[in-house]
Design a protein around this nucleic acid. Structure first.
Lengths: 121, 121
DNA sequence: GTTATACTGAACCATATGGTTCAGTGTGCG
DNA sequence: CGCACACTGAACCATATGGTTCAGTATAAC
């Protein structure tokens, strides 16, 4: 109906589907951090954290820059506007679904059918 | 900072991370459908579609009810309000990050450091 | 009663995910 | 120079994911 379902949603929603990664975003919102910083904070190996940062970076949620031997992570260009819009749109149809006459009729028919079946046993 | 990072985000974001599943939600917004309906529409086996519906159901995005031999799927109780709020909050901090003096100083320091390194080569 | 339909469950498969260790490489510091 | 530190990459592991087929079971239709 209103929804568009963009291909980059796969990466962004998948990136958000992990608590550690949401935590990293949370942390980066407070200030930039190195991979080591994040790794120690989330009690994980450097390598493990680097993978998470890689996922976030691929989704555009984080950018990184290596200066000397430390790679600094900061919030990236993706501000999740499309994702926000998709969810907002979803909520809108959700509301509509149960406020229209169609929705009510749907519901009544469903119940009627279920009732009928039960009685016939 | 503002974020809360609820545990059920894992399931809901993971559920949204698949194009087929977003398509199913899209479809259910247009009207209820059986597993068969969805399977044929998304060119997939019944079994495959049932798994997707299971994921959506576990995330609370869909509810199903079996009447006779057909299982009808409809939009579920999860309206993604928390997820919406999380993303909205994220965007807010994102904005703040690059409008505060802190952000600007951060950025300048970063550039200065990078410049210094480049010259020292 | 027979047959077709709609789903269900188990088993399987390939690939992805979330983590590790280990062995480098490159950089900074004394 | 020499050592420590920050990261990187490869290899590995267990489990999850997204799909399939195949063999049921229950229900609807004739």
């Amino acid at each position: 109906m209103v929804q568009y379902n963009l291909p980059h949603f796969n990466a962004s929603f998948a990136a958000l589907a992990d608590a550690t990664r949401r935590g990293v975003l949370d942390q980066l919102a407070r200030g930039n951090a190195s991979i080591s910083d994040l790794a120690s904070q989330f009690d994980m190996t450097l390598t493990g954290m680097k993978k998470h940062v890689g996922v976030l970076e691929a989704a555009g949620l984080v950018t990184t820059e290596k200066i000397g031997r430390v790679r600094t992570c900061r919030l990236g260009p993706c501000r999740l506007e499309d994702e926000l819009a998709w969810i907002a749109g979803y909520r809108q149809v959700w509301d509509a679904r149960f406020q229209t006459l169609d929705g009510v009729i749907d519901e009544l028919q469903r119940r009627e059918k279920a009732r009928g079946r039960r009685q016939r046993r």
